[in-house]
Design a binder for these strands. Sequence first.
DNA 1: TCCATATTTCGAGAATTATGGAATTGATGC
DNA 2: GCATCAATTCCATAATTCTCGAAATATGGA
Lengths: 115, 115
Amino acid sequence: METTRPSPETIVAALAALAQEHRLAVFRALVQAGPEGMAAGAIAERLGVPASSLSFHLAQLRHAGLITQRREGRSLIYAADYAAMNGLVGYLMENCCGGAGCVDTLSDTLERIAS
Amino acid sequence: METTRPSPETIVAALAALAQEHRLAVFRALVQAGPEGMAAGAIAERLGVPASSLSFHLAQLRHAGLITQRREGRSLIYAADYAAMNGLVGYLMENCCGGAGCVDTLSDTLERIAS
DNA sequence: TCCATATTTCGAGAATTATGGAATTGATGC
DNA sequence: GCATCAATTCCATAATTCTCGAAATATGGA
């Protein structure tokens, strides 16, 4: 049940993947969409990004391991990889959050999400 | 006591700042160093990065609001801005973590940090 | 097989980011 | 004022990333 810890290279790749307006928007949309995911076309329409540009960004997110792809008929369906995201957030909490002080703040945030 | 929520632009800027090998290393070192911070020279030596390159990266981190700068004699001391980092991690937890599933995982992580 | 749909890959140009040596700024002590 | 130390800014170059139209690929139905 224990997942292996992400390396700094993995982390940098994930951060870089999310560090772009369109890609952050794509990822947020996919998280909202849930495990069902969304077809590439639906994402493109929702964000108003040309298909070929979107395809480029989806490839980046996929390469970073943040999203998965499956085919359904003619459509390619993308979905957020929650485990990868948990790995990223976990890394930031452990390595970049400054210990005790952050625990309280982030606990509050988790409570708010849960309720 | 409530801090204002970061906008997506702020988030993208912070992610971009951390999405680089040297800068992630710098930030990690500053988190380890604590509120005291570290002088630019000490960071450069520790990471083995030329002064002018490091200066460039420090400016990026500072511009993204992730670190602070203060002068102490001839040295410029940099320190991690924990509040900014909490803002980033909080945003990711709230917008990019897929709800219930992540709460458990991240709660475990917080417990591990606290102990 | 032929056509329409969904999406990707190709390719070329624009824009941004990273690198590091040399010159510059700011602070300290004599 | 001058020498020294700490760090930044400047500059040119290299490398990477972003954009999007056009062409190519994959799927499903008539």
